[in-house]
Structure formats: structure tokens, C-alpha cells
Design a protein around this nucleic acid. Structure first.
Lengths: 316, 316
DNA sequence: ACTGTGGTTGAGTAATTGCCCATGAGCAAA
DNA sequence: TTTGCTCATGGGCAATTACTCAACCACAGT
């Protein structure tokens, strides 16, 4: 039995219980008696292990349907890489499944031995993916955020994922000390000219791989919900043909960045080159379908992680 | 509600069901209805996915390796219980880690409500473990020492752990009022025939659980250091194949007790039955490896608390 | 010392899952 | 066509697990 120091002891016990349950296949009763605790406590430890993401489950079998879809989507849109996860008919717009898949992909990159620059955008889906990451130590890599970490109300933006990532991944990380939207193009110029910002922007342009969430527009889309845009602004954007955004950059149904006042105020770094690096978009669900189709059509991204439902839509 | 065609393999369905169950966290009922099959079939698919190793579970925590080692050691040597603590490469032959683990295990037994007889041996490791015990009150239990409490020079032996234990644990405790080694087999008979000794011996034979240290031989081993044996005697023993001792009982590399004059002079109680009770050996470190391997091979013990280093050695 | 708060525990109970078994479909051999 | 075999199926039920709740404990702030 591993040492039972007060604080870390609980997680140790949780890990032990989780291992006995999932890996060794013991029942919770057996675990309880072997650890000298009650059955209920054993159950709690097991669910704690799950809640703390100590237990990672992955499916080691390419579901043929998903593979076929992935291939078809990749060919049709000329993408470098496509991952399709099964749709979960019950759960609606949640991040279940896609987060794990994205985390696995991120992990794959981080395990490379050669130093890489990994850029991340923002969004709930990406946040969920990052939360699935195990602890990794990769001193050689650098992680850079494409988007600002300051919310409209001045607080640190919750969905700025680089901080969550720093918790799990031991690597140098470079946040972007800017708001997401500034008040004018001129202000953006000024801010971007600062030395600190400048170097972060330069680094992001050299990213080897980039993970971004794909956001849909609409009055219940993230830009409105998180208070970046007013309802009125959103309606106007949509009237002008906007269908989605990546890191705040708004694009139309062809995937072309819109030439409008909002995009001039976006303080995010430009999306790294799709010619020389891998830019993987993450998103699923009916509401994001149009945005995703636009993003792949206009080559805002050259990699995609999504679900069956969206994949089938992309093929129609 | 997608009906699977027969052509798509059964394993695909299993993978899908397994994914929905383990990754998406749906119940088997939900999976059944979304795949258009009965709940039972869904259950079968899920267990098929597990049986076919489509589902891989891993524990993302440092103790995972220890648990796997423990399982492997337990199976290989047919032990009832094995605890492995992480090796601390910095600390050499100290009791760091293992003492806490052993204390936790002792505590677990003492917390039982049904009255038990707990027997203890001797040794530095066991002493360190007992020192880690918190104050416990357990009037119903009895604690009995297997070994004498009189050192070769006539003083009370420091490493007789039952007195340390009595400080922390409020329970009736029964030391063994004897030397560890007597001068001859005849003297042992005489002493053991005494009423007081007799009853303690009888009680030790009924122990529900026993904790013993595992001692290595050698001129810097405990038997020599504590003055029980002369250098010359030790060398002779080792020439005769002795590799370790438990409570003074010396055994060879197969774990068989040696049939020699020293063992005839050991005044300790016999090690309680490994068929009807739990006898947990405690020890770690390179120097004890051979002794530990012998003890588990010869079933001198049926439980083990050790460290990763020894566990790996045991598996070679 | 008092008290509220956060966290843990075991009991009880509802939900979920694992497994046995009778049934019947599919199929090859008689 | 019949027989015998295999195997998937769903019903039923026992085992197992998840969740709720009240009680309890430790502790920080009056």
C-alpha cells in the first residue's frame, strides 16, 4: 500500500481503486475489503478517479464507418488529416467523444521528440479537449496562444485554453496578453507593436501545428454568449453572410474572411499558414455544420476532428 | 436510429457500443435503442469489445506501475496479498515508504471490529512501520510477539517491536519473555515448557495475521550487527546455503528452513500457518532481494510488502 | 466555547448491469 | 425432409453499482 499522507493520499487511493476496478476487473466490494473501507467509499473513490480523469479509456479499433467517412471528407476537401468520432445520438451539442479524440491528437504531437511550436485557439470544445490531457512533460516544445486572454469585462477569459493546458503539460507556454477584441484597427496596431506581443505573434506564425475550435455564429453562439458581440452586431454580421469564426476571425459560407469592421478589431494572431503547417479544427454538432463546412471549403483549416453527423453533412 | 447492415462487421458494432458506453458514458439501454437492438445485445457487444481488447483503459497516475507489479508478483508466487511502493532511487536501504505502507496495512487489520490476534516479528523495518502507527484503541484485539525480547547481552532488545506497538495501540499485548537465541535445543525445550511461555506460543499459533520483517544474512546483516551471531557462525551458515531469516528462523534459497544447530537454538515461536492465516513479510532494497525471493518461493510468507525494485527482481 | 461550513461516512434505495436459460433461426449432414 | 448442431436473442433475475440523505467530524471564524 502506498503511503497515506493526508493530502495526496486521497488521489492515490482513488487511483488504486480505479485501477483495481477498471484494469484488474475487481468488484467494488472486493476493492472495499482489500482497502479496508466501506463499499460506498470504494465506489466514491472509483468515481473520483474517473472525475479526476485518472482513468483514461480509449477505443482501439477503427470503426469502419468512421474511417470511410474520414477518408471521403479528407479527399473531398483536400485536408491533411481528418478524424471522425461516432455520433452520440442522445447527447446534443456536448463535447463528449470529440474532446477525447482531440486530446489524443494533441498528445500525439506533444510526444514528438523534436521540438515543436504548438498553437492553440479558444473555445469550449478545445477547453474540453485540453482537460482530457494527461500530465506530460515536454520541455522542448513551446505552446503559444493565438487569442487574447482578456474577456470583455476585463477578467481573464475562462475559455482561453492555454492556462488549462499549462496545468497538465510541462512546457513553456506563451499566452497573448491582449483583449480578444479591441476598439479599433488603430488600437490593434499599437498593441501588436509592443515587443512582448510582437514576439508571441512571431512565434505563432511559426507554429508546427495548431488546434482551433470552430465557432458558429448566432445570438446563442459563443461570441454573443461570452459577451464579445452585441445581438445587433451579430445580426448585422449574419446579414453580411458571416457563418462562423475561428479565434474571432469571422468568415462567410465560402470560408473567406469578411472584410468588415469587426474583423479589423480582432486582436488574435492570424491563423498559421495552411501551406506550411497543420491547422486542425475541432467541432461537432448540427449547429456548427455550416461553420465547419465553410472553414474546410475556404481552407481556413487543413485538418478536422468532428463526428459522423457533420461528416455526412460535409459529403452531401 | 441507424440500423446496422449485416455486412458491417460484428466487431464494428462492438467497437461502436464500447465507445458509446465507455467514452460517451451512455447506458446500455440508450445504446440499445440508438443502435436498434435489445439491451441484452448491447450488453453483449460491450463485453465483446472488452473481451476483444478493443477498449483500452489506462491509469494516469504514478502508482499504476506499482499496482501492475503487485498483481504480477501475487500471481507468480501465489501470494494472498502484495503491496508495492515506489522505489526511491535516492534513498538506499532506508525504510522510507515501506514503513508507511506497512503501517497502513496494520492499521487496516486493527480497525476490524471482530477480535483478531495479530502477531509481530522483529526487525528494523517492522519497527519503523510500527512507529508510523497512529494511536488506535482496540480493546478486543490481542497482539503477540513471535520473538523473544532479550538481547544477547541480557538487555531488552531494542528491535522487539511489540513494546513500540503497545505505545500507540491500546490492546492487550503479549511479549515473549525469552532470549532470541538460547544455548541449546534442550534449553529451548525447558523454556518453552514454562506456563507463561506456553500460552504465548499457543496464542501466536492462532494468529489471524502476522507481520514479520525479512532479514538478509551476511556479516553486515541484522543477526550479526545485533550480536546474535558471530562472524564465523554467519560465514558457516552462508556456506551451507542460508540466504535469509524471519524471526531468527534461517532458510535457504528455496525458502526451506535449514536443519542445522542454529535453527535448533532459535527460541522464537514458529511462523503461524500460511494455510489458515495471513503472514505478511516486509522488506525492501537490493540487499534483501535474495532473502525475499526465498521467503516467497518457500511460502514462509503469503503476503508481501516491498518496493518496485524488489518486485521487478522477483519477476525475472 | 460556539457555530456555521465544507467534506466524509454509512445506510438505504433506485438504477444498471451481468448472466443463465429456453427458444428459435440458420445450416450442414443424414 | 429430418436431425443435430451452433449460435444469437430476449426474458427474467440476481448481483453490482450509483445516488440520495441524514449524521457526523474537523476546522475556521466569530
Amino acid at each position: 500500500m502506498v503511503k497515506r499522507s493526508e493530502t495526496s493520499g486521497r488521489l492515490d487511493d482513488a487511483a488504486r481503486a480505479g485501477w483495481l476496478y477498471y484494469v484488474a476487473g475487481r468488484t467494488q466490494d472486493e476493492i472495499a475489503s482489500s482497502m479496508g473501507i466501506s463499499r460506498q467509499s470504494a465506489q466514491r473513490l472509483v468515481s473520483l478517479a474517473v472525475a479526476e480523469r485518472l482513468i483514461k479509456v480509449r477505443l482501439d479499433h477503427p470503426i469502419a464507418a468512421c474511417l470511410e467517412l474520414a477518408n471521403a471528407v479528407r479527399e473531398k476537401y483536400g485536408l491533411r488529416q481528418v478524424d471522425i468520432v461516432p455520433s452520440d445520438p442522445g447527447a446534443g451539442a456536448t463535447t463528449v467523444g470529440i474532446a477525447e479524440a482531440a486530446a489524443a491528437e494533441i498528445e500525439r504531437w506533444l510526444k514528438k521528440t523534436d521540438p515543436i511550436v504548438l498553437a492553440v485557439g479558444t473555445g469550449r470544445t478545445l477547453k474540453a479537449a485540453v482537460d482530457q490531457l494527461p500530465a506530460i512533460e515536454c520541455i522542448n516544445h513551446r505552446i503559444v496562444s493565438l487569442t487574447g486572454n482578456i474577456a470583455p469585462d476585463g477578467s481573464a477569459a475562462y475559455y482561453n485554453v492555454i492556462f488549462s493546458m499549462a496545468d497538465a503539460v510541462k512546457a513553456r507556454h506563451f499566452p497573448m496578453p491582449l483583449p480578444v477584441l479591441v476598439t479599433s484597427a488603430e488600437e490593434r496596431e499599437t498593441l501588436h507593436a509592443q515587443q512582448l506581443v510582437r514576439s508571441t505573434l512571431d512565434m505563432s506564425a511559426q507554429a508546427d501545428v495548431t488546434f482551433v475550435g470552430i465557432g458558429e455564429l448566432g445570438i446563442d453562439g459563443p461570441l454573443c454568449v461570452d459577451g464579445f458581440l452585441e445581438k445587433g452586431e451579430m445580426m448585422e454580421l449574419m446579414d453580411n453572410g458571416a457563418v462562423g469564426e475561428i479565434c474571432g476571425w469571422i468568415f462567410d459560407s465560402e470560408g473567406k474572411l469578411l472584410d468588415n469592421p469587426i474583423n479589423e478589431r480582432v486582436a488574435s494572431a492570424p491563423i498559421p499558414s495552411r501551406d506550411t503547417s497543420v491547422v486542425i479544427g475541432i467541432g461537432k454538432g448540427k449547429r456548427k455544420m455550416k461553420a465547419i463546412k465553410a472553414a474546410v471549403t475556404g481552407h481556413q483549416i487543413n485538418g478536422l476532428i468532428t463526428d459522423e453527423e457533420v461528416a455526412e453533412y460535409l459529403l452531401t
